[in-house]
């Protein structure tokens, strides 16, 4: 089958499943891309997720790189369109419908009920990323330092903290083979 259409189909499915944002759909993304389709290895997936972290904007823009790895620039386009078009169209339509329920008491119930569900999904997304990214004392220290920086020091730019984490890894881990394929 045409690999470009496969990329489009997989990321369209992920787009519709991505309720609660990118962090919540990360495990499914990995299962399909690494497990089902063997488009990437575990290590490549972790690295490409890292690339998504160092660029601005939504870090799930990394789907572009996954598509690029499968079939080049056309694959990148397929992944982008697949991941953003279905969910974008649903959001656009639903927010308009939502406006028609202005004043309905159930609208407030929906907002109040979904708010903690979304917080729970964000927490789960954090846990799923931690399971791949936290693998030793140094990564724990980096995570806690960034957490403290973002949560306690209001004025700090998160970009600097993420890049700082990369520099610490570069300085302290580059001699250890961290993150390298086992062979």
């Amino acid at each position: 089958m045409n690999e470009n259409l496969s990329v489009l189909g997989v990321f369209s499915l992920l787009s519709i499943l991505a309720v609660g944002g990118g962090a919540a759909v990360l495990p499914e993304t990995k299962a399909l891309v690494v497990g089902t389709h063997h488009w990437l290895t575990d290590d490549q997936f972790r690295d490409i997720y890292g690339l998504g972290q160092v660029v601005p904007g939504p870090n799930m823009l990394m789907v572009i790189v996954i598509g690029y790895h499968v079939t080049g620039f056309l694959g990148a386009l397929m992944a982008f369109v697949g991941f953003f078009l279905p969910a974008g169209a649903i959001s656009w339509a639903a927010s308009r419908v939502w406006d028609h329920f202005e004043g309905s008491p159930w609208r407030r119930s929906l907002q109040q009920g979904l708010a903690p569900l979304v917080v729970g999904l964000m927490a789960s997304g954090t846990i799923s990323i931690a399971r791949t990214a936290i693998d030793g004392r140094l990564t724990i220290i980096i995570a806690f330092a960034v957490f403290a920086g973002v949560y306690c020091v209001k004025k700090i730019n998160p970009a600097l903290l993420v890049l700082g984490g990369g520099l610490v890894g570069l300085a302290l881990l580059s001699g250890t083979g961290a993150g390298m394929p086992p062979n």
């Binding site: 962090a23 490549q44 972790r46 690295d47 997720y49 890292g50 690339l51 972290q53 160092v54 870090n59 903690p116 979304v118 917080v119 964000m122 927490a123 997304g125 954090t126 990323i129 931690a130 791949t132 990214a133 936290i134 140094l138 990564t139 724990i140 980096i142 995570a143 806690f144 330092a145 960034v146 957490f147 403290a148 920086g149 973002v150 949560y151 998160p158 903290l161 993420v162 890049l163 700082g164 984490g165 990369g166 520099l167 610490v168 890894g169 570069l170 302290l172 881990l173 580059s174 250890t176 083979g177 961290a178 993150g179 390298m180 394929p181």
Partner: peptide, 30 residues
Amino acid sequence: NAHNPYVNAALVGVGAAAVGMLSAVTLQIG
């Protein structure tokens, strides 16, 4: 450059930093 050890070490640090960042944002919203 997929097998460059410097690139990989930096990406490990970035991934760990992302965990701290996501935790803080989740707590701020929740």
